[in-house]
Design a protein around this nucleic acid. Sequence first.
DNA 1: AGGACAGAGCGAAACGTTTTGCTCTGTCCA
DNA 2: TGGACAGAGCAAAACGTTTCGCTCTGTCCT
Lengths: 351, 351
Amino acid sequence: MAATIRDIKKVTGLSLATISKYLNGGNLLPENREKIERAIEELHYEVNEMARGLVTSQSKTVGVVVFDIANVFVCTVLQYLGDGLRAAGYAAMICDSHNDPLQEADNIRFLMGKQVDGLIVLPVAQTSDFLNPPIRAGIPVVLLDRSLGDSRVDCVKVDNQTAAAEALRLLVEYGHRRIAIIGSDTVITGKERLEGCFQLLKEMNLAVPPEYLKLGNHSIEHGYQSMWELLRLRKPPTAVFLGNFEIILGAVMAVNESEFRCPADLSIVGFDDLIVSNLSNPRLSVVVQPLRSMADETVRLLLRRIEDIRNAGSNPDAEQEPHMELSLRAQIVEGGSIAHIKCSGRAVNSN
Amino acid sequence: MAATIRDIKKVTGLSLATISKYLNGGNLLPENREKIERAIEELHYEVNEMARGLVTSQSKTVGVVVFDIANVFVCTVLQYLGDGLRAAGYAAMICDSHNDPLQEADNIRFLMGKQVDGLIVLPVAQTSDFLNPPIRAGIPVVLLDRSLGDSRVDCVKVDNQTAAAEALRLLVEYGHRRIAIIGSDTVITGKERLEGCFQLLKEMNLAVPPEYLKLGNHSIEHGYQSMWELLRLRKPPTAVFLGNFEIILGAVMAVNESEFRCPADLSIVGFDDLIVSNLSNPRLSVVVQPLRSMADETVRLLLRRIEDIRNAGSNPDAEQEPHMELSLRAQIVEGGSIAHIKCSGRAVNSN
DNA sequence: AGGACAGAGCGAAACGTTTTGCTCTGTCCA
DNA sequence: TGGACAGAGCAAAACGTTTCGCTCTGTCCT
């Protein structure tokens, strides 16, 4: 059905090798170049990437395995990843792990079967065993968002601990002492953020009373429920740290439904902005992850590895660049959701 | 590097044809079957899908082109699509059009180059010209969510018009007469929903005063702004229809920030539920699109077309099944966001 | 006993590219 | 004028599968 390089040969009278050279940007007589171009136009010729891939053993395809594709953070990252890969001529095969380590491992196998040139993984598993197959097969892997402490792969993430500490420091500097935390310890990023919070509180000689510490998962429900529980306390906190986007969404809904006003009655600082933060009134003060950079760095790292492998070729003793963990700095963007407070007295709006 | 069928031949002493037969589920002597299985295990053999694809001219891959991958509706659909395709052994190459018809057309070309067996498109363009290349090349296309009125392709969507009318009918039946609409006429689904609204209002001999009709795009901003404008009117509406998920999100935030309470002061009915609806208090009454079914039907339709093409094979006069537009019925799920109202008097909570 | 038939296996030819090593034709410089 | 050299083109061999048509070996029925 579809035209092949052989049809072009018939039309132009040139050899396969010459046509191939044209397709891959070699030097030709202008005359022949034109002939080929005309033939391609006429025949609607398109390179068959499978045939090409078979001989180059490159599929120009990378697998992207995400812990949950319906998650807003994931979608946004996916967008940037897709753009970056596409710009380099790579297609992304995206697989959803549904937050299930078994499906994750299965996705990896599936994608390997599809001959991907590399893998980008936003992992759900807590250990890196599931990466053995691609590593053994020499397929480069870059982890994104969540590190697994495995030195055999590259990783791009955000410095959650420092960022969370900075956010909390802000609250303390505004005078807050009764600070609550709604976060998650079921996932590594959540743990790191909590770690950052605790570290700063310790540094400041502050403590979180148990009723101010709400642990669950990174979900709207958790944010909503926990916030209500906090607001109903006899002595509610004057400020609260919200561990991720979903928690923010839920918590803000709760606050809005209540009689509490932000920041007069309650100051808020949260992790991840995405949609809600600059819509709510006042704007939220948030830790903003550099999603674009994270995606770009991930793609850059992966493509470099793929390039290296290609160049190393048969040479087996080629030096492997050591694998790296890129920890990007998150930025705090202040909205108006934090009020100054004197001692443990009433809040004073800073605006 | 990787083991091939030839290595298995060496180990087992069997012919390539036999091994291939094994891989594709043919009949073998138990003895030989075991031999091959042992060799595969030992050599970590994996079928090279590119080579297989080259000869079968099937890539077991479909392209999915979406208008905006960061959109929550899209993500959710993508999840279901991915599951369905995966179950059939197909990988999904996902491309984002960024709501730009030019990028959309480019995505189609790109994916065709990658030898996809079929295309699923959530289109942004309003006409179907950009589908000419795949149609000419004989690659089946299924449109999802948005129809383009092109009889050369299949389409799966929701009956927006009827669903919107039903939603509005609900408001009227509850006694509302001052009904506002926040929607979009920039996109076909939005238009259809508006059409349904108008149709019902006409049927009921009601009209929407211009200040009650807020047209924009399907965005949080539009919902938020428009809702505030409605609430600030001298004579605000007693009920409002919200055209999609993003609009709901923005509008609900606005209501919560205001002094209006739902449903006492304002009744709400919206299109799409997804995350917010059953979290807000009271739960929202919403039109729920059967996303799972939409995705499943889409996959079913596409795979059937692919199958048909494969079976038709060289036979050029094979009858093509006529293309169809599947219009699924949406369901209205009542929360508590609609209050009974007597004439134009004050609202009476129905709960 | 003989013929038909089914099951299992085989060799070789495809599939549509890239790549390698070669030849041929000019051009440039000594 | 001759030799080196660069540029352009070519034929053929890969790449790792599937598939086609064939042979061989039993088994079953008449």
